[in-house]
Design a protein around this nucleic acid. Structure first.
Lengths: 191, 191, 191, 191
DNA sequence: TATGAATGAGGCTTCATTCAT
DNA sequence: AATGAATGAAGCCTCATTCAT
């Protein structure tokens, strides 16, 4: 039927979508959701404005899909799916990858924290975000419980907040923030 | 013009400015900087658009002034100007007021975390923010040093990040976040 | 308070609104709802695009208000408010003014028939239209009943349909349509 | 290529065209010309956008061809090609089929009145329409002349207008319009 | 013949800002 | 000091049409 096969079309679609997502993500991270126009994204992706709507229904769907993909990717990058048992070593690993990511993979983290704080965007992503973060909180809380710590779930929340706050402050003043020392304190006092 | 009437004038000016600032702040907190139009602010403040520009040069100046005033106010509300010596009791006090504010004054806090993490706004406010937060970090770091803690400045940064991260996560899920228990852990393990 | 008085503002508003409505009406009548852009209307009215939204919430509200005003005006122009009793003389008068309007006041009638047949627009105006046309149908039906005619309401509907169909066909071929002769037949056979 | 396969080819072409025309017609009837996109038509017809342009040069050609075909079909459905002599029985038949169509085949009729009254479309179809409607007017006028009626051509126009107006009003309020009674009046007083 | 990716113009709408009064 | 009419740029989005395959 079609001179271009389904497979070919799928490949084209996938590549284009990735290009758009990448451009959008970087712009969102750098400038925030509202400050980035569809025009700018299309231009950065080397694509016409119209085509963008071939791949994403609208600007909200675009940011939603990108953010959720980004969070998923982060979780994978943090080297954990939280299915196995959590151990001290794995927790340290997670914190260290987190810090490594902050330093080397600024992009994903910046959009994550940026998005976490934009009222309009958060509503779009809240539900999916909890489905991803929930298991992490539970897994860590299990670890604390086994370690005999009081209030294991609160500890788990605290650890999450620390990672969030750390990212936030690091991005505000990356040159001054004592990332490594802060990490050592966390490991010493909170695991 | 008599001094008396001039005083009245200034008072009127001040009140009007406050009315505008309050309206703007609440709208920003609820909707984010970009989603709030000058028209809406003027309307909420009971003032004409034109008059608003009589008090603030433009939308950026408006948010800048509001945010900086807000940070100053927060510092005062936290009961400290950091000039005197920092003690454990005062630190606990600060943390407790912080938490109290989060619970009771959600709206105001929401805007600061929200606005402060919007890339466009951050640039406007960065400089002033550090002039305010710097002394806090130093004061807390002094406390840790005197308490004989290793890496006092990093401890200070960590404490700041914890408060930031806690606010952030609390605003995302106010009903589930175990604010009090997290507070207890902080006091136990990090002061 | 305001250097321009409320009255002055109202006058400005009224004049501008009329200018926009007039331009829009002519364009809609000539080209149909969908083919007329806000840009074109604004240009024809000698007004910026933005200002148009100061007076009408959106394109739908614009056409709705214009059409309803137009129908009201037509009714008035037809010299009747249907409150008094309907007589043969008055009916003839109505038909004659109708024809006169078709010939001389093309604008209103064209938009009326044009709008009557545009699915998207009709939904916007249906309710209000019936509130205007209903009394006409009833009034005419009363006339027929008193005249002892069978099926007075159907007669009333038929008369309405004739006027509609006549307008429709006249606008399609104004030069050939035998308006006056058709009128005579109506008067002879249907009143 | 054998004649056989060529025939099949043509049949496929014809079927495809019909499928497209049918889909387009229904969409136009429901939504109006401008509100229906080529994409939607293609989708509804189960055909790619590209292929659609293989059958119709552009959107205007599409609507033009559909409308003209439709008018021709209507004439056939009305049971007349106006070549033979017009009689009272045939006229009644025409009116009755017309009404039957209005009731049972609403969709198709709706598009013709809708599309035919859209200024943009009318221009496209005017010429062809008169070639079809002209003979009807003449044929009916002949009937009236033979029946000894004054102004036979005006009577013919009037009858056409009545059918048009009746359709128009019926589509606006199908549930209330007294189609059958109106028909009786027409037959009684105007044939 | 058939597909759907791709374009670019143009549509509707919002909004910060200016300015006459 | 105060108003709100007015502007124009820019934002989001749609769509007829083209074209490589």
């Amino acid at each position: 039927m079609s001179p271009r096969s389904k497979k070919q079309f799928n490949k084209i679609r996938h590549n284009r979508k990735m290009a758009i997502a990448k451009a959008a993500m970087e712009l969102f991270a750098e400038n925030g959701f509202d400050s980035v126009s569809i025009s700018k994204i299309a231009e950065a992706a080397g694509v016409s404005k119209g085509l963008l709507y071939n791949y994403y229904a609208n600007k909200e769907a675009l940011v939603k899909e990108i953010v959720i993909d980004g969070i998923n990717k982060m979780m994978v990058d943090l080297g954990t799916n939280f299915s196995g048992e959590m151990t001290k070593a794995r927790l340290i690993d997670i914190i260290d990858s987190n810090i490594e990511q902050l330093k080397n993979n600024t992009r994903y983290w910046k959009i994550y924290t940026s998005v976490l704080t934009q009222p309009k965007v958060i509503e779009l992503v809240k539900k999916e975000m909890f489905e991803i973060i929930g298991p992490f909180l539970i897994s860590v809380s299990d670890y604390y419980r086994k370690a005999g710590v009081k209030r294991p779930m609160a500890q788990s929340y605290l650890l999450g907040s620390i990672l969030d706050g750390m990212s936030l402050d690091f991005f505000i003043a990356p040159d001054e923030y004592p990332l490594n020392e802060v990490r050592d304190i966390i490991v010493e006092k909170l695991l």
